[in-house]
């Protein structure tokens, strides 16, 4: 039951994230409204999953840590939706929905497959390097994601000719910081992902194919695309920031799945 509700919620948040992204590309308010409705639906499903998991289920599908995460993401979505009734924060939706999609997807996978046998001790140093480099890369991508959100906020204000905020860094400032972090984080993340595939190749039948591996490959592909296009043509701007956001939430899902295995 929980896994079904979480899967439906993840799909709904995914739809919301796509709608918000479409809005940020075209600034067509209809996409923003669709995003808000999809977020509302996702939050309802998340509420259902939370009720089932905490109050109804005799044997909860999620261990304590993921359950706390479930409560947390439900709280964030609920706050987002109620705050929309009082004050419109345009960039809140495009931040909340992808993060909710990422976390809910990880929780749905966790609820479906249960706990996996610990295999991280199999390769010793390679595993340590794999985990260390991936996490370090991820830790650099996280602030890059924050700067890309700030970039999009400033860009939205400039594009819609609304007042600026003294707290917001300049468009170019936040963009440059985001890119620098990606430039440093990407080689580390590449090493981490590569070692992960080496590890999987050697471990073979022990680990098998898992969603986190697929997500890691996708996120690496997205960061590779970003870095290559940036270095080759100097590509940047709103669309580049959106790709950076997608890359981060995919990475987040992969990391969460790995941590919750």
């Amino acid at each position: 039951m929980t896994s079904n509700l979480l899967t439906a919620a993840a799909a709904s948040f995914g739809l919301a994230a796509a709608s918000f992204m479409a809005w940020l590309v075209r600034y067509d308010e209809r996409w923003r409204a669709r995003g808000a409705w999809a977020t509302f639906l996702g939050t309802l499903l998340l509420l259902g999953a939370t009720v089932v998991e905490l109050l109804v289920a005799v044997t909860p599908a999620l261990p304590l840590g993921p359950r706390v995460l479930l409560l947390l993401i439900f709280g964030v979505c609920a706050v987002f939706l109620t705050s929309r009734l009082r004050r419109d924060l345009p960039l809140a939706g495009p931040v909340v929905a992808p993060l909710a999609a990422s976390i809910t997807f990880a929780l749905a996978v966790k609820a479906t497959r249960g706990s996996l046998p610990d295999s991280t001790t199999l390769m010793g140093a390679v595993t340590a390097l794999h985990i260390g480099a991936t996490l370090l890369g991820f830790l650099l991508f996280a602030p890059a994601y924050v700067f890309s959100v700030l970039f999009l906020d400033q860009e939205y204000r400039l594009r819609t000719k609304t007042r600026g905020s003294a707290l917001l860094p300049s468009l170019l400032g936040s963009e440059q910081l985001a890119w620098r972090l990606v430039f440093v984080g990407f080689p580390l993340y590449s090493v981490g992902v590569l070692l992960g595939f080496v590890w999987q190749e050697r471990a073979g039948p022990v680990s098998g194919w898992r969603p986190e591996h697929f997500l890691a490959a996708v996120s690496w592909g997205l960061y590779a695309y970003l870095t290559a296009r940036r270095l080759r043509t100097g590509w940047r701007g709103r669309r580049a920031a959106l790709v950076m956001q997608v890359a981060f939430v995919v990475t987040l899902a992969a990391v969460l799945l790995y941590v919750m295995r």
Binding site: Q154, R157, L158, G164, L168, P169, S170, L171, L172, G173
Partner: peptide, 9 residues
């Protein structure tokens, strides 16, 4: 000038 500062560092 204010707008330019919001764009460029």
């Amino acid at each position: 000038v204010d707008l330019a500062r919001r764009i460029f560092k």
